[in-house]
Amino acid sequence: MKVHLPNSAFLGNINAFLKVIDTSDPEVLEITSNEKWISVHPVVLCMVASLGLEVRSKNSNSSIKCERFTATSKHYFERMGLFSFLQLDSEIEIVEHESAGRFIPLTQIKNSTDLSKFIEDMIPLLHLDQKNTQPIKYIISELVRNVLEHSGSKNGAIVSAQYYSKSNTIRIGIVDAGVGISQTIRKSHVAKTDLDAIQLALTPGITGTTSKEGGTDYNAGAGLFFTKSIAKINRDFFIIYSGNTLYKLLREKDKNEVLLFSDPLEDKHTKDDGLPYWSGTVVGIDIDLTKTEEFTTLLDTIRGIYTKSVRERKKAKYKKPKFI
């Protein structure tokens, strides 16, 4: 496998980074990087860490080759824990008095207890007020639980987040190297392509655990829809990448009224179904804290479309007795 950390890779321009990932040899990971400056979304770090974990867990012959980082921004990767994740010596020294910043370093979450502890511990790291912590806790809880319950990934979920003061934005990445969305959704639904599967996974009330509307006692099929909706109402980016396909929710312009749709393909989005195969699921989201609506306002908006969508599909499946 080969991955190149470019000069810039954020949700808006992440396609170029994804296109050059080479997943052909699962026993070797080669990491190269831009020589001068590297600035990437936490989801990119999560992907590299996830690939590294997969290689490390293969066998003793597997290896990770990482070109020495020369970029001025190389300290960022040390602080985010990338090299310790990959079990590599970066030869980068962090000056102790350097500001700790506002970030959540790369973290592996393998079970429910880890997740609860992670959520408890992470919020102080971001130094945010109650209004802004609610959607972040919510998103991380729902998405990581999806990984733990559906992905089948032996390495669990890799999570990371970073606050960017210039844009007053939190960027979050959650990645797994499990079975991917298609395999999960196809347990209960028909999905010919990865895009079909992503579309279903983002539709309220649809879960891979049952074909019944509204889910089971344990799964409602709402986590991804809620997350996408939070991004949409706040006019932020949201991406989901699984198999060969990337779905990207685009930012709404400030002048436009934001409408939620149960079908993600009705949202303003781009899709790319010709990307290198990612075995598992990658989710990235930005939360602009300047624009963040009150969480309760978000819930009001989501409630309307969620309930309408589930009811409409129940109604569509309703069968009348046939009198002959």
Partner: peptide, 10 residues
Amino acid sequence: DSITQSFAHA
């Protein structure tokens, strides 16, 4: 302070 929809559903 807060609950998730998944928690309330379960």
